[in-house]
Amino acid sequence: MNVPTSTVALFATCINDTMFPETPKAVVRLLERLGCRVDFPLQQTCCGQMFTNTGYFREAMPSVRNFVDTFERYDYVVGPSGSCVGSVRDQHPMLAHRHGDPGLQRRVEAIVAKTYDLSEFLVDVLGVTDVGAYFPHRVTYHPTCHSLRVTKVGDRPYRLLSAVRGLTLVELPNAQQCCGFGGTFSLKNSDVSVAMGTDKVRAVLDTGAEYVVTGDNSCLMHIGGLLSRMRAGVTPIHLAEILASTEDALVAAGATAPQQGGSR
């Protein structure tokens, strides 16, 4: 595919846009470095996952329509979130079908076919695993539940991290075990959520990693909050920020690693 002549729309997601802006910025730097033309459509809003997950299907429909109106003119839609991309690909078709609008169903199906998690887009569309990144640190990767079971990114993040110069990738024990965030689950079942998160943090600490990386800042926020309370000294960071990191950029910044926007 001749991607560099196509336009890639950045689907930032609302949590990144409001709380972790360094992640979508990193996506832009990374994709532009790889020759893509990237646009950030200002009309985008939440994908509606919070409504859909709690059964408010009718209330989620404006988000579905806005997503289609915002992104259907682009060649590709790329988001740094297995959870939100999974919502678009899994929940939007269901909502459009329930709404009973054949025209909307067709538009949703068309946009689903060109909506990618960042790791999928890099590996499957651009055909690269070595993106020219440099990150001289010991890291461990937590595969979030939605990225595994809904978006199904598989081993793509591992392949991308394994190609980063200077990076030591350490296997996370019980990696596929949920961190306990689960969106509203962490609010409604806080004790269980914290217990699950504590198990995840213990596994992270067992690796001796300096950084814990995921493809979803929502889960990273939960893990990072627990790490911060424990004063564990492990920094949470999004996959995009590692992949966007280069030796020249680190030298110019006078730092050894980019700083993640979440709790530490």
Rank of each mutant, 00 (worst) to 15 (best):
V131T: 15
G208W: 11
L161D: 00
H137G: 03
A195F: 02
R159C: 02
H146S: 15
T129R: 08
G215F: 02
T214L: 09
H142T: 06
T214A: 13
G215M: 05
F135L: 06
S193V: 04
L148I: 11
V153M: 11
P136T: 11
A203K: 08
L169C: 00
Q176S: 14
T151D: 13
V212G: 06
V123Q: 02
V164W: 00
S186G: 07
L172N: 13
D124K: 01
V139K: 03
L148T: 14
T151W: 09
D191P: 08
G132H: 13
A175I: 09
F185Y: 14
D199G: 06
G197F: 00
Q177P: 04
Q176V: 12
P143K: 15
G182S: 05
V194E: 11
Y141E: 04
L169P: 00
N174G: 13
A209I: 11
R156G: 04
H142G: 06
D130H: 11
E210S: 08
L148F: 09
A209R: 11
L205C: 06
S119N: 04
H146P: 04
T214F: 02
V139H: 05
S186P: 05
E210F: 06
D216M: 06
Y134K: 07
Y211T: 02
S190I: 08
S193Y: 05
S147T: 12
D191Y: 11
G197I: 00
T207Y: 13
F121I: 10
S193H: 07
V153A: 09
V212M: 06
P173A: 10
V153Y: 07
M196D: 00
D216R: 03
G127Q: 12
P143Y: 10
F185V: 07
L187A: 10
G182C: 04
T184M: 15
K152D: 12
A195V: 01
L172E: 14
L187K: 07
A195H: 04
V128P: 02
G154F: 13
S186F: 09
R149I: 11
D124R: 03
E120S: 10
C178T: 01
S193I: 07
H137A: 13
V131K: 08
T198I: 00
L169G: 00
Y158I: 08
H146W: 07
L172Q: 14
V128W: 05
A163K: 01
H142N: 12
H146A: 15
F135Y: 15
Y211D: 04
S162W: 01
S147K: 05
A163R: 03
G215T: 13
E120Y: 09
V139I: 11
G180F: 04
V212F: 07
T144F: 04
S193D: 10
T168R: 09
A195E: 09
K152L: 14
C178S: 04
L205A: 07
G127M: 12
V128Q: 13
F135A: 05
T207M: 12
G132A: 14
T151K: 15
G132C: 13
S193W: 07
T198V: 03
F181L: 10
K200S: 01
H146M: 12
T151H: 12
V150D: 12
T214C: 09
N217H: 04
L167F: 05
L122G: 01
E210D: 06
G197Y: 01
N189T: 06
Y211F: 14
A209S: 15
T184H: 10
